[in-house]
């Protein structure tokens, strides 16, 4: 079986500035939850956008399930961007139908269960909801797909700690053995326990790629502590 994600010499340069990603080589196997960690501007979002075909690589390749980003990869990748990306004028129930219409692997029932768990009215229009609730709706839609690769950019950034717990639960709950979750965050401590593996990115380069328990076993410290040491200013 091909790895779910493979980056080969992947580089991205915006308008003659320095490289946001520089010759990145990375392979992700199936069935893990991977934390993509790095300080602001290290290239995390650039990598995520390249995976989702929102950017074109300057050089190198990104392969999802063995092929370049395109219609086929979009069927199996479920993507949560860092900001809201839904049409504000739509009702929640319309958004659910929209996702169900376009994604074959979207499970409507799962979405409605999660919406009612969080007490979100399906007849409400998105624009009437608070920022935190909008983020929850987005995450619910993204996690209601039976995808092979979930790419979550800062999934817990803007929500309160209680909702954060629910979101982590949602991730654990909907995760299946064949799926891989790649999530970027600054809040390492909150998610450390749900990660199999962490990837540190620094200035567009891969700085570390190891499992959480390897780090704890070999270094005797948490990923959070290690992160603070590696990226000390």
């Amino acid at each position: 079986m091909k790895p779910i994600l493979e980056c080969q010499g992947l580089s991205k340069q915006y308008n003659n500035t320095s490289c946001a990603l520089d010759n990145l080589n990375l392979t992700l196997e199936r069935g893990q939850i991977v934390g993509l960690l790095g300080p602001n501007g290290s290239g995390k979002t650039t990598l995520i956008k390249l995976i989702n075909d929102l950017l074109t690589p300057t050089c190198g390749n990104v392969l999802i399930d063995g092929s370049r980003p395109g219609v086929e990869s979009k069927k199996i990748v479920s993507y949560l961007p860092e900001h809201t990306y839904l049409d504000d004028s739509m009702k929640i129930s319309e958004l659910v139908t929209y996702f169900a219409d376009f994604y074959e692997n979207f499970i409507t029932e799962r979405a409605y269960t999660m919406l009612s768990d969080l007490g979100i009215d399906k007849n409400a229009r998105l624009k009437t909801l608070s920022k935190g609730t909008k983020e929850k709706v987005q995450l619910i839609l993204v996690m209601s797909r039976d995808a092979l690769l979930y790419v979550l950019d800062e999934p817990i950034g803007g929500v309160d700690p209680a909702a954060r717990d629910y979101i982590l639960q949602t991730i654990i709950n909907n995760y299946n053995e064949n799926a891989t979750i790649l999530l970027s965050t600054h809040l390492i401590q909150d998610i450390e326990n749900i990660l199999d593996r962490v990837i540190f990115i620094r200035q567009g380069h891969l700085a570390l790629n190891a499992t959480v328990d390897e780090i704890r076993m070999e270094q005797g410290k948490s990923v959070d502590t290690l992160f603070r040491e590696v990226f000390r200013c």
């Binding site: 989702n52 075909d53 929102l54 219609v71 979009k74 900001h83 990306y85 376009f102 994604y103």
Partner: peptide, 17 residues
């Protein structure tokens, strides 16, 4: 709005060319 604003992040990740 649908292609080049924030909504583009959804539009361009739909399984369509």
């Amino acid at each position: 709005k649908n292609l080049f604003s924030n909504e583009g992040y959804l539009t361009h990740t739909l399984p369509a060319t």
